[in-house]
């Protein structure tokens, strides 16, 4: 059996004793080698989750295991790009990469780092403080990829990139994942940009995990139905339902075969995610399907 890339068990974090929980009772398992999207509204706890996995924050309760060990021990093998893409503003691009090489002796991938930076047509002698947001993202990604991590945690990595750079860097990331089996976890608001690339989804809302699993499995578990208004949807789990005129459309998790007179369709990933986001009260999927684990 393979060691999961991340395994969280009742993980919780709050900042301060009286503060609200940023993340609570968060349990999931991410198999290695996946490209996982972490989606959720602002302030849902996505960044907190990534920081916990990167060993930058200590959990208030519960545990998180990364690459089969604790986050601090796994740190040399984990790449992390923070939401704000912090870099030392006084260094030049070339110096920043040299620093990465110096601080990661023995496992620094000069070529990959240089390739990521070269794609942006960046003058290596420019100082970080003079770069635009997107250019800084590129350097931050180069630092994280240069480390050649087994697990790459990216917090809103594509937010300030232009569409071209986004496409190119996503390609680099997927190439990395394919070539080295790197597990990639990236958070994003934009579900559409993740649809083609991610094969695993983690939906976080209100500080808890609402959906977790392979995107194919999740999509298969949900059905978009159209039925006459006031049709009882029992015993199926309703994520979202809307009545327009005499027609009812709903997204359900079927508990059994659906009646033949309902029109059914497969939802897109974006539809699925949006339905959950629009309905914070919708029942969470529980327990998380460990289909990949049982298969392995």
């Amino acid at each position: 059996m393979t060691v999961p890339a991340i395994e969280a068990d009742a993980l919780g974090k709050r900042f301060g004793r009286r503060a609200a929980w940023a993340l609570r009772d968060c349990s999931f398992r991410l198999p290695a080698g996946r490209v996982c999207a972490v989606v959720g509204p602002n302030g849902a706890g996505k960044s907190t989750l990534l920081a916990l996995a990167a060993g930058l924050l200590g959990p208030t309760e519960g545990t998180v295991t990364v690459l089969g060990t604790d986050p601090a021990t796994a740190r040399p093998e984990v790449g992390f790009v923070d939401q704000d893409k912090p870099l030392y503003p006084q260094l030049t691009v070339a110096e920043t990469l040299r620093m990465g090489a110096d601080l990661n002796p023995g496992h620094w991938d000069e070529r990959t780092a240089a390739r990521v930076v070269a794609g942006g047509d960046l003058d290596p002698n420019r100082r970080i403080r003079s770069l635009s947001g997107g250019q800084r993202t590129r350097v931050a990604l180069a630092l994280a990829l240069g480390k050649r991590p087994a697990l790459l945690l990216l917090d809103e990595p594509m937010a300030d990139l232009d569409p071209l750079a986004r496409h190119e860097l996503m390609g680099v990331l997927m190439g990395q994942a394919a070539a080295h089996g790197t597990t990639i976890v990236m958070s994003s608001h934009v579900v559409a940009e993740l649809e083609d690339t991610c094969d695993h989804l983690l939906l976080i809302g209100g500080g808890r995990v609402r959906l977790a699993g392979d995107t194919d499995d999740l999509l298969a578990a949900h059905t978009r139905v159209t039925a006459p208004a006031r049709t009882p949807l029992d015993p199926h789990t309703v994520v979202e339902s809307r009545t327009t005129g005499r027609q009812l459309t709903a997204l359900v998790r079927p508990a059994g075969p659906l009646p033949g007179d309902w029109r059914t369709g497969a939802p897109s990933l974006e539809e699925l995610v949006l339905s959950y986001l629009r309905n914070p009260g919708a029942p969470d999927q529980a327990p998380p399907p460990d289909t990949t684990e049982t298969a392995a």
């Binding site: 920081a51 990167a54 060993g55 930058l56 601090a72 740190r75 040399p76 984990v78 790449g79 992390f80 923070d82 704000d84 912090p86 870099l87 030392y88 503003p89 620093m99 990465g100 601080l103 990661n104 002796p105 931050a140 630092l143 994280a144 480390k147």
Partner: peptide, 13 residues
């Protein structure tokens, strides 16, 4: 600025 986090994820505990 968060550069401490950068350092912590760049091989410096």
């Amino acid at each position: 600025s968060g550069t401490a986090r950068l350092a912590w994820t760049q091989g410096v505990s």
